[in-house]
Each structure stands twice: as structure tokens, then as C-alpha cells.
Computed example of a mutant assay.
Amino acid sequence: MRKDVIEKILTLKNEKNAVILAHFYQEAEIQEAADFVGDSLELARKATEIEADIIVMCGVYFMAETVKILNPDKKVLIPYPKAGCLMADMVLEDELKKFKEENPDYAVVTYVNSTAEVKALSDICCTSANAVKVVNSLDTDKILFTPDRNLGEFIAEQVEGKEIKLWQGYCPVHEKVPVESVRLLKKMHPEAAVLVHPECKKEIRELADFVGSTSKIINFVKETKKEEFIIGTEMGIIHQLKKAKPEGKFYPAYQQFICDQMKMITAERLINCLEEEKYEVDVDREIAEKAKIAIDKMLSIK
């Protein structure tokens, strides 16, 4: 890890009166320089508490949009504006509008891994950390869950008395985890706990000892006495896992468990973003106001 690069980011951040938010999937240098590192829910909550002039979101674009929606009067920057989310792109605004018109009795629950336009059409948002609580909080028994079919299936397994239709989106990074790889790792490391994200397919979740969001995986590692772990989510999280349990051994569920989009945010691009205060995020005010209703409903659930 380059300490000089981290120091430069910290110096610029202080000069600009900026706060840096970073997702667990970011590279280690960015996580070390950030004011706050978290999952989507934690980042959304933190975004409501910031008083700085500038907020820099080190994550993919939908995350920066969420920060802007929650901070309409602040300057929100993203170091690389083309860092996107293929899952978020699997919901088209007009397709969701059509579903709502044809199925007015369904409540739309939308994963935060979605565009501002889709959030604006939703009744409530959720993250992988609070999805079950969100669905259980709704009075209706008919729900469309969008966009992630794997997370939606995971929710449906834990929620009773509700019909849950699944949008056929998915995270390509979690979707392609090979079952054979996880089985082989379990044989190689029989004492290791298998911890996976609910964006993984059902056959991967069934091999797990624990299924949860990134923050819940970190908490599991902190609290368990086990010291070996097979990690079924993006490899960036291992930086935080090693901090949580320095003596632990962590094995990625497969060696290519990398989100290329997240990794488009680099320390050099973060420095450039801060120096020039460029790549400002903007969300249409009408869309932002509607999306904020769905986000606020999510944040109100403890």
C-alpha cells in the first residue's frame, strides 16, 4: 500500500473540506483514505449526516446518485463517472412503468443497486442488509422485487404470506461464482466457514454457513471463533476482514471475484477528482424528490 498516495488524498481532502465515502469493494488505499467505509445501507445513512462542502463517493454511479438525492444542495463528486452497475442497468424505466400500470396491486421494492429513475418509480428501497425487514414492513402481500432475482429469492425464502415476483436482473460478478470452486475450497479447507452474499445463486447460498450483506459478513468474522473463511463476495472486502481478524485466513470463493466497475475508481482518479473538483453528480430534481421518498422509507426502518 502506498502511504504517500494516501497522505496526498488526506491532504487534498482537508484542503477542500471534503468527505470521502467508500464501499467495501474499493481498493485498499481508497478504503484507508476514506472518512467512512461501509455497505450500501451504511453509506446511505452516513450520507444524511455530512456537513462538509464536498462529498466524494468512491463506488459505482448509483451510489453517487443516492448521495446526491440525500444531499441535493451539496457538491457530490465521483472519481470516475462511467463506473456503473450492470445489475442496475437491467431495469428499464419504461418496462417498470408498464408493469405498474398492468399490476397496480403490487408494491415495488427496489434494491438500491438501481438508477435514480427506477427508485423514483418504487414504493420503497432496500439493501441486502435490510431487505427482509423492508419486505416484512409492507402491508401489501403482493410485491415486485427489482432488480436482483437472487436477493429477491433469498428474501422470499425468509418471508411468509407474501407473493414476491422477481425481476430477472442479477449481479454478473456474484452470478458467475462456480459451484465447483466453492466445493473444492470446502474440501481443501474443511475448517473454514463459507460466507456468501445473497446476490449469489441459490446453489452457492446452499453451500454457505452464513449468507449476508458485506457488513454482516464482517460482523460474522468479528464475532466467530473460527479463523478460516471462504469469502463469497467481491475481493475488496478482504481488506476489512483482515483488519477485523488479523490472524484470520481468507480464501476468495474464486480467484476472479472482482467487480471491474468498482475497480475503475482508483487512487489516482480520486486525487484528480479532488484536485479539480470534477465529475459532479447531478440528478433531475423531480426524479430525485420521488426517489428520496423511497429511500427515506427504507432509512426509517431500524
Rank of each mutant, 00 (worst) to 15 (best):
K187W: 00
F229S: 03
I155D: 02
I238E: 06
I50Y: 04
R269A: 10
V159Y: 05
T214I: 11
E234W: 09
Y279C: 08
F145C: 03
V182T: 10
A116K: 10
E234Q: 13
G84Y: 10
C85D: 08
K133G: 02
T66D: 00
I237L: 15
Q255G: 02
K290H: 07
E275T: 13
L185G: 04
L166R: 11
Q261T: 13
K202L: 15
Y254K: 00
L185Q: 03
D89V: 06
K176Q: 12
V179W: 02
Q256T: 13
F220S: 04
T266C: 09
K142T: 01
E160R: 12
N219S: 13
R285S: 14
G59E: 08
H197L: 03
N130G: 03
A88P: 14
V108T: 07
Q31D: 07
E203T: 11
D39I: 03
E268S: 09
T110I: 00
E32R: 13
E93V: 15
H174D: 00
K302P: 02
V60Q: 08
E29R: 11
A253I: 13
K290T: 02
K142N: 10
F62A: 06
A131I: 04
E275H: 07
C126G: 10
A120Y: 12
I265W: 03
M188E: 15
M63N: 14
L185S: 03
A28F: 01
A88D: 10
P81T: 11
F99P: 14
K297R: 15
D123Q: 06
N103S: 08
E29P: 03
K263E: 14
E268L: 05
E289M: 14
K292P: 00
T140H: 02
L270C: 12
Q261Y: 14
E228R: 14
T110D: 00
S114C: 14
E228N: 08
I78A: 02
K242A: 08
D260T: 07
P72R: 14
D260H: 13
A28R: 12
Y106V: 09
I54D: 08
R2M: 06
D141V: 04
K245M: 10
Y170M: 02
M90W: 09
E93C: 10
K176D: 04
T48S: 02
D139I: 02
E180N: 06
E247G: 12
E101H: 07
F250W: 14
A64E: 01
Y61C: 01
V37Y: 12
I258V: 15
V76E: 10
I218E: 15
P79C: 05
S300C: 00
K176W: 04
I9N: 10
K165V: 15
G212N: 12
C126S: 14
P104C: 05
I50N: 04
D139A: 13
V196S: 11
M235A: 15
G212S: 11
N130W: 05
A294D: 00
V194F: 01
L151M: 15
E180W: 01
I217H: 05
A291Q: 03
N150G: 08
Y279E: 11
S128V: 11
T140W: 06
Y80K: 15
V177Q: 01
K176V: 13
A120H: 12
N103G: 07
A131Q: 04
P79M: 07
P190Q: 06
N14E: 15
T127D: 00
K245L: 08
N130I: 01
I230H: 01
A208G: 05
F145E: 01
E15I: 08
A88M: 12
E227V: 06
E160G: 05
